[in-house]
Simulated scan of single mutants.
Amino acid sequence: MSSEGSHDFARVRRIVKTDEFSSVFRLRPAQKTAHFVLYTRANELPHARLGVVVAKRFAPRAVTRNTIKRVTRELFRAAKLPAVDCVVRLSRPVNAKTGPATTAALKAELRVEIARLFSSQAPRPAKTATS
């Protein structure tokens, strides 16, 4: 394990309570991709927190839902995010019940979309003021 950044996903880094999810959902989406919506809200903690919502109607198989959650958590841990609460919500179907539950192509596509969401929230390098 690298000492750089946090690679754990302890309970303090999760959004678990319904009212915490609701308070983030009340705000407008921060970013959208083909399959996901990211909601963010600043928090008073020294770290970012993550919540993942994967509805059965968009990913009918548990294997697919768990893959999405696993990939999202993995990318969240790697992202250098400011102190925000992030909720990633699946907003469109990713596959059908008849096809394979998860494929390498699906995982790669999900990884690209979720990485794009988190990179949109990464802190920008400070610009020097010249005026």
Score class of each variant (00 low, 15 high):
Leu90Asn: 07
Leu75His: 01
Val37Thr: 15
His47Met: 07
Leu81Cys: 02
Glu44Gly: 10
Val63Ala: 13
Val71Gln: 11
Val87Asn: 09
Val52Ala: 11
Ala59Asn: 07
Val94Glu: 02
Lys56His: 15
Ala59Val: 06
Pro82Ala: 05
Ala59Ser: 11
Gln31Thr: 11
Ala79Thr: 12
Thr64Ser: 01
Phe76Asn: 01
Pro82Asp: 08
Ala55Val: 04
His35Lys: 15
Thr72Phe: 00
Lys69Gly: 06
Val37Ile: 13
Ala30Trp: 12
Thr33Asn: 07
Gly51Asn: 13
Thr33Gln: 05
Arg77Cys: 05
Thr33Tyr: 05
Arg65Pro: 04
Thr72Met: 03
Arg73Met: 14
Val63Phe: 11
Val53Ala: 14
Ala34Met: 05
Gly99Ile: 12
Asp85Phe: 04
Arg61Lys: 15
Gly51Lys: 06
Lys56Gly: 14
Ala34Glu: 15
Gln31His: 09
Arg41Gly: 04
Arg49Trp: 03
Val88Ala: 08
Ser91Val: 11
Ala48Tyr: 00
Pro46Arg: 10
Pro60Ile: 11
Cys86Ala: 12
Ala59Met: 07
Ala62Thr: 11
Arg61Asn: 13
Val71Ser: 03
Thr98Gly: 15
Thr67Gln: 05
Glu74Arg: 02
Asn66Met: 13
Ala62His: 06
Ala48Phe: 00
Glu74Ala: 06
Arg65Tyr: 07
Ala34His: 12
Glu44Leu: 12
Asn95Pro: 07
Val63Cys: 08
Phe36Ser: 01
Arg92Ala: 15
Thr67Glu: 14
Leu45Asp: 11
Arg41Thr: 03
Thr67His: 07
Lys97Thr: 14
Ala83Pro: 05
Lys56Val: 09
Val87Gly: 08
Ala96Arg: 14
Cys86Arg: 07
Pro46Ala: 09
Pro93Asp: 05
Thr33Glu: 00
Gly99Gln: 13
Val84His: 01
His47Lys: 04
Pro93Gln: 03
Asn43Ala: 06
Ala30Phe: 09
Ser91Glu: 10
Val52Ser: 09
Arg41Glu: 08
Arg77Trp: 00
Ala34Gly: 12
Leu27Ala: 11
Pro46Cys: 07
